[in-house]
């Protein structure tokens, strides 16, 4: 097909663009978005703030708060993988527009919970080396 026939075909079919945000975005499942804390599960190991590559999480154990700098978060998921109690989840929600850089603070009420004994997953074994030279 030449470019001319492509253009004629496109002229009589529906447009390729979606009028987002009037129409919802075409997001695939498992899309990366914002992170959310479930503060009932946090045991203050501080792994999330240590693993964050962009210093987007500021944890204060004495005050029992996590501050998430939304503008710095790159939705990499390192904190989600690092958390031993699954207190952080990543939603499929794109970042909202705002007028100023948002900082969300998550506060934990009550005393720090004791970590429940979690069964360790079996260690990964590397498969055998490639056979063909």
């Amino acid at each position: 097909m030449s470019m001319l026939s492509n253009s004629l075909k496109n002229l009589f079919s529906k447009p390729a663009t979606r009028r987002y945000p009037a129409v919802p975005a075409n997001i695939q499942p498992n899309c990366r978005g914002r992170i959310e804390y479930d503060m009932t599960k946090c045991i203050w190991c501080m792994m999330c703030s240590r693993r964050c590559p962009t210093v987007a999480i500021e944890s204060d154990k004495a005050a029992q708060t996590h501050k998430v700098y939304r503008m710095r978060c790159i939705a990499c998921g390192a904190c989600v993988e690092a958390c031993p109690t699954d207190a952080i989840t990543m939603l499929e929600h794109y970042a909202d527009a705002s007028y100023a850089p948002t900082i969300d603070t998550y506060h934990q009420e009550g005393p720090i919970p004791k970590p429940a004994p979690k069964e360790k997953p079996p260690p990964c074994e590397p498969s055998e080396a490639p056979k063909k030279a």
Binding site: Q28, N30, C31, G77
Partner: peptide, 15 residues
């Protein structure tokens, strides 16, 4: 772009 978003969650910067 739709295929890579389905696998990795991002259209650019697959991480």
């Amino acid at each position: 772009m739709r295929l890579v978003e389905m696998v990795s969650g991002n259209r650019v910067h697959y991480s």
